[in-house]
Design a protein around this nucleic acid. Structure first.
Lengths: 254, 254
DNA sequence: TCGTTTCATTGGTCTGACCGCTAGATGGAC
DNA sequence: GTCCATCTAGCGGTCAGACCAATGAAACGA
């Protein structure tokens, strides 16, 4: 019997798999600063030999980090696997998958959007980062073009919210915002496609977007935040409660 | 010469790699609702044969989805690869990697934390989800235990903010909050380890956490949000400006 | 000198093999 | 009949080796 009354506390000792070891090794180099954006990794064959694993193990690790937007591979003599800085696609895929799996309730996703975009709007009203404002203006023009298709409208809608997030000047919030909106893109487009009163709906959306832009441009942060929240929630309601949709949380994809 | 003045607009035709096709196929099944949490995928060999790719391609795809918290594999006759709902680890690794790569400036990470946790605090004050409140209380007790180590203090600090996020009742915000705090864990712990005035610093942190908890428990949402923001920003300043740290954004890891 | 060909290097893919793990079938001891 | 140890089939985990595809640079010829 051990002297410690609480017991020796054996830890489970989960033997790490080969590819996890490789991921850990690469992550370690990144954390230590020995690998930064633009750097080239050793060839797969060499890295496998150095780490004492097979090439398959290295490749699986590279795939994982690639899917996280950390690495990118290219064949060719000048090619190789190098460190890259493109986090958004990974975040989008992540959210899209988990939304599809209902691991995240649509309601909670909307709540998160409201929190992030309210903050974005409020900050954008004071910072006015020109890139984002331009993106928003162009998106408005595309939405207001005569005879715009629902696909194009949805793309412009996504771009508008991306621009708003960019205009806020905070990269992390912007990445989260854009990823959430992009992950929802398919759902929103499906709802738009189903809409039987598209003219009225799109007029409404155009007016809301325009009002948000004006509030931001005029520097009215609190108003912009309020408009964004109402816009997101009413759009979500339309998405959620569309009478043409069969029941169920993720019905548009079924 | 093409009749269209803008040109035929050749798209690059990026040939999708085998594992991307497999990921797409699995994602498609998930989006269609044919695969949900708990479901078992076909054996790797069979799936490879059905999709017309090698087992390596299937395995690379499974690895990627596994790293996103969507699949999990287990050997054994009853084992297999099944759909699983554990998004947080994946989100944490993602953020940790990109913070380490300086793809996300620490300042922006802190901004995002402020936005998310202000909202969490305000909501927690009205919702009072009991799970989260209990987690916060226990974390406070651990922080206030005599002779607590810096590691344990940091773990309790993380737990406190997790509890706050849980108490807000919104799963997505909570996942984002917890992941950000966990991704910063190493940095914060390093800063704590370096601290030459740990007694004073930890007293300060204990007081701030206690004040936040009291404000939430008393239902003072706006006060709680304000306290959380000040707490996060002052802690970030200590982390960032610690005189013992060498210059540079990610110095604690260098 | 300039264009063409060849070549070496790298990732991309596939094949086939063997290992370790584990629930369930098997079979023997009582 | 019951219970326990053993065996077995099927699965993921890993590996080695081979060949394909892409690419830039060096070698070569007009």
């Amino acid at each position: 019997m051990p002297s410690d009354p609480s017991g020796p506390d054996w830890k489970p000792l989960r033997r790490a798999s080969a590819h996890e070891l490789v991921i850990g090794a690469i992550e370690e180099q990144i954390a230590a600063g020995a690998l930064t954006v633009g750097d080239l990794l050793p060839p797969e064959r060499e890295l496998a030999a150095r780490l004492g694993v097979s090439r398959a193990g290295v490749r699986e690790a590279v795939r994982v980090l690639e899917s996280h937007g950390v690495l990118r591979s290219r064949p060719g003599v000048d090619g190789g696997t190098f460190v890259t800085p493109v986090p958004r696609e990974a975040l989008t895929r992540f959210l899209r998958l988990h939304i599809a799996l209902s691991n995240f309730a649509l309601e909670d996703v909307v709540d998160a959007r409201v929190v992030l975009e309210r903050a974005s709007a409020a900050r954008a009203a004071t910072s006015h980062a020109e890139d984002g404002m331009t993106v928003m203006r162009e998106a408005l023009e595309r939405m207001e073009a005569p005879g715009v298709s629902r696909e194009d409208f949805n793309a412009a809608d996504t771009a508008f919210h991306s621009g708003l997030a960019e205009a806020s000047g905070s990269a992390v919030s912007a990445a989260l915002t854009v990823s959430i909106r992009t992950a929802l893109r398919g759902l929103i487009l499906a709802a738009m496609q189903r809409s039987t009163s598209w003219e009225a709906v799109s007029d409404q959306l155009r007016a809301e977007h325009r009002a948000i832009y004006d509030a931001v441009a005029a520097g009215h942060g609190e108003l912009a935040a309020e408009l964004v929240e109402r816009h997101i929630r009413s759009a979500a309601d339309d998405l959620h409660l569309d009478p043409a949709a069969p029941g169920g949380r993720l019905s548009p994809w079924q």
